[in-house]
Write a protein that binds this DNA or RNA. Sequence first.
RNA 1: GGGCGCGUAGCUCAGCUGGUCAGAGCACUCGGCUUACAACCGAGAGGUCGCCCGUUCGAACCGGGCCGCGCCCACCA
Length: 868
Amino acid sequence: MASELEQRTRYDPVDAEPRVFARWLDSGLFHPEPEGAPEENFSIAIPPPNVTGALHMGHALNGAIQDLLIRTARMRGVRAKWILGTDHAGIGTQMQVERQLLREGTTREQIGREAFVERVWQWREQYGSTIIEQYKRLGASCDYEQERFTLDPAYVEAVMKVFVDLYGKGLIYRDNYMVNWDPGSRSAISDLEVEEREVADTLYYVDYPLAGASGTVTVATVRPETMLGDTAIAVHPDDERYTRLVGETALLPIVGRRLPIIADPYVRPEFGTGALKITPAHDPNDFEIGRAHGLEEISVIGEDGRMTAAAGERFAGLTALEAREAVVGVLREEGRLARAVPQVHDVPFSQRSGERIEPLISLQWFMRMEPLAAPAIDAVRDGRVRIHPEGQLRRYFQWMENIRPWCISRQLWWGHRLPVYYRGEETYVGLEPPEGEGWTQDSDVLDTWFSSALWPFATLGWPRDTPELRAFYPTDFLMTARDILFLWVARMIMMGLEFPGAVPFADVYVHPIIQAPDGRRMSKSLGTGIDPLHLIDGGPRPPVFEAGGDFPAYGADALRWGLLAMSSSQDVRFNEDKVAQGRQLTNKLFNASRLVLLRVPEGVELPSRAPAPAAVEDRWILSRLQRAKAAMARAADAFEFHHAALGLYDFVHGELCDWYLELVKPRLYAEDPGEASEVALYVLAETLALAHPVIPFVTEALWELIPGAEGLLMARAYPEPDAGLHDEQAEADVGRAIAAVQELRGWRDRVGAAAGQAVPGRLEAEGYEHTAEAVGRLARVRWSEDGGEPVASVAIPGGTVAVLASEAVDPQAEARRSAERRAGLEGEIARAEGKLANQGFVAKAPPAVVQTERDKLERLRAELEALG
RNA sequence: GGGCGCGUAGCUCAGCUGGUCAGAGCACUCGGCUUACAACCGAGAGGUCGCCCGUUCGAACCGGGCCGCGCCCACCA
């Protein structure tokens, strides 16, 4: 790298990153010893990626943020543990392997459960480490020495203990209950895995004859096939049209079943006819009403999606859709179909399989949530867990206060098999299989989120009293996406409080969703997904990019910086420009380092403490560095990661490179740079340290080249701000000089002064005792004592520069420019005068604001006068 | 139906505890291969801060009402 510094003018991440990562890994610093108390340590449990997964943009953002926090803590000398692991992801993984089997011409049923599970383990051996390796490419400083998996024996032990304990407390129970049956995965799924989609259906109006009298009751339904399971008709108790019918009986067409007409406030009088057919076995609402009124539950659709024997001979065996047509046909023949109208409505679909949910009654395992939710509500209410941004709080409370039983059993083979055994009428639940003959284990496994809910403590060894658990639980921070706040985060809080007995984390940060550049969801199937690795290494741009072609190899630092800069409290569109800007930053640091490191004389080393230099630009940059440190710290503490990223960029570009290095350059090039070398080295090193948690690779690579820098940058002390190093005088002096240079450059450009040519001028301004030389050099003005008549007057803070006649100044251009300026000044003066003439302003505004306005007016008048 | 959030320069977004003619990156224009960087440097143009009321000496920022957009939650046949 050292020779690279001389040869290259651009930073090459492809070359540097693997080498730097290997050094980090070898150092063992990613793995903290489990010592000390959780309060003095810092830990984050990674949201476990699916073993089936590949790194996507969400992971990359996640990783950038968590690594920023972990690295900052580590540099602060805190034991920082980033708990790593993967999730077995029941349905997702099972489906992957099933697809593989299908390609081989077999199915899981054919090979049997044991062989199938063995296949999944093989599959996991082969592909499970993919995403871990990808996290390494990001530079994520996870504890790779202790990778966890939700099906590790120790983790399984935790899951089983929780199940058995909650069963013992009566919170886990088995019941016949309405579930969301997913015909695609042939399993029940939880409410949270259901999504609504708009579907165009037909609303059928069906006449049900009354039993005791003439006449009919007409009901409206989009699912006529379920009427075979009707056991009542319901109307609203206040609906006068039907008051006289309540208590009467109707006859179910086709079947002939006698249906009581009942009153229930759930029914909306204004919808359809105001009469609702009740099918307790196939509609969640009807199920509730049915239980409330003690109605019979007749299942006419089975778990295979076909009509059961209970649907009657004519329909048994048909699919639900076929049955619908058949039922409508019969109704039409019998003259029972009053009318049919198009109806657009929301219908539940499985997020997993994409198939339409079939609500049906099934024997499943459930968890009662209210007793667990109450303490979890308190924990957030009293601030033991803080959720950011706060807008999410209301949602949390709303959901938790209306929490419903959780269906935790899944009819899958890949996962934690229920520790439940049956023998005849007996049921046994326990960690060890029961004694005796004839027991069979329940074939279901647990919902994947059941094991995920234990993540922050099961990964640390709970229920055993491990050193890791003692040192790192509770964790400090949790990163999550909005859509799994309930699926995962809320349940972790509940389980953390119930089992280890403490909230699992102090701060929850809900990160934004990164959308495709066109605002659509990032998704592989839409062609809108962007592979983070393609941004790191270079790779094809997906079709959503108009530009096409390949991404350049931006490197992990650029990607991390870009993602942090994009992040916000709202969802954001992916913006390649931001990644490019990140690369500019890495390149800028590389070149700033070239300037400093290639100029430092032999023998000069990084000072061990902040130098106390005499030169004004040195004092200025040390002071500005403190401000940058404070701004970074503030942003990170407030979880405003875009401020951290952008603030770093502004400091490096806008202060360090644009001004400090330009100001100090002549001294660095001098035969004896004196203090300049040490100060420049110090500022460079501090800047690298400050930037390290954001862009770890380039900073570590450059740190290696600093003479006198010891060890790894990742282990160096974090640069804490020190207000004692503020130097108001230097900031004022250099700030004034910068403004003067900008004024003079602007003037030069306007009058068309040739770029390479110095302009003679007299400095007629206060406050440039220490900076006149620099101003002249950077603005290309040659200071003169010549008393001649100026050809132009350029306002700078504290006075003016009188420009003397020379070839560089075109009198006509100057006349144009001064006329424009004069007009502009007059306008501004009028505005300021107007404001100060306003009695309300002068009387009510704070004196400082009024004074600022007065000063400004005075300055403007002086400039106008100088302009002549 | 409820909740959260967003509409600021051509694009993507900062700014919003109210107060120096509104900021960044990219794109654009002009000028520069100035001894760290042309994947660079310097300068510049570009905005009714969605619309309308109100509060205030003063509103992109606070309040109300509209218009447009996104996301989440919800049992409406």
